[in-house]
């Protein structure tokens, strides 16, 4: 005789509670922008409080002028498995960027502006680094609308208290 038991109920609400994630995005190339976006989105989907801090070249991700035009270059990147001499040819970066964007779109992953929209709709927080803003002479109005503020490194250290921090 087999005994049928009541089905287990997944634990949804305890796992994420209290966990916090801070992601420092310091690179502005297309291939280095996505890891932060993907991780932030995944963490938010698990109910984890998530903060993204954009600094140095990472500013390109939240700069209205550049956010839709991030590029990927195969130059000096052995992971592309292409002959290094060819990678420096004119037009190679825009060709490689075009190919990568097509691949990203092909697996139904959004472009950067839509990704940021999705992240903030999911409750994620976007912060810009003050030193980078000063260096690049950028004001809040130059940045993506949903950036919550331009904050100093110490502000970031404060707000990331207790967070697991990832530097990209």
């Amino acid at each position: 005789m087999t005994l049928t038991l009541e089905a287990p109920v997944p634990v949804f609400d305890d796992l994420g509670s209290g966990r916090k994630l801070a992601i420092i995005c310091s690179k502005g190339s297309l291939d280095m922008a996505y890891p932060g976006m993907v991780l932030a989105n995944a963490a938010l989907g698990e109910g984890i409080e998530t903060h993204l801090f954009f600094t140095f070249w990472g500013f390109d991700i939240i700069n209205k002028e550049t956010m839709s035009h991030l590029q990927f270059t195969p130059l000096g990147n052995p992971a592309t498995h292409m002959p290094p001499m060819l990678m420096g040819l004119p037009g190679m970066t825009s060709f490689a960027t075009h190919m990568m964007k097509k691949q990203i779109e092909g697996i139904d992953v959004p472009d950067i502006p839509e990704f940021l929209e999705m992240i903030t709709d999911s409750g994620g927080h976007l912060w810009a680094c003050k030193m980078s803003a000063d260096m690049m002479h950028l004001e809040p109005e130059d940045l993506y609308d949903r950036v919550e503020g331009i904050i100093s490194a110490s502000d970031f250290i404060e707000l990331s208290e207790g967070a697991q921090t990832i530097f990209i």
Binding site: T2, T4, L5, E6, A7, P8, V9, P10
Partner: peptide
Amino acid sequence: TATIGGHDVHVDQEGFM
């Protein structure tokens, strides 16, 4: 196999049908 609301159904370890 487990029961949900009195019905016998197949579920995984976490309880997803």
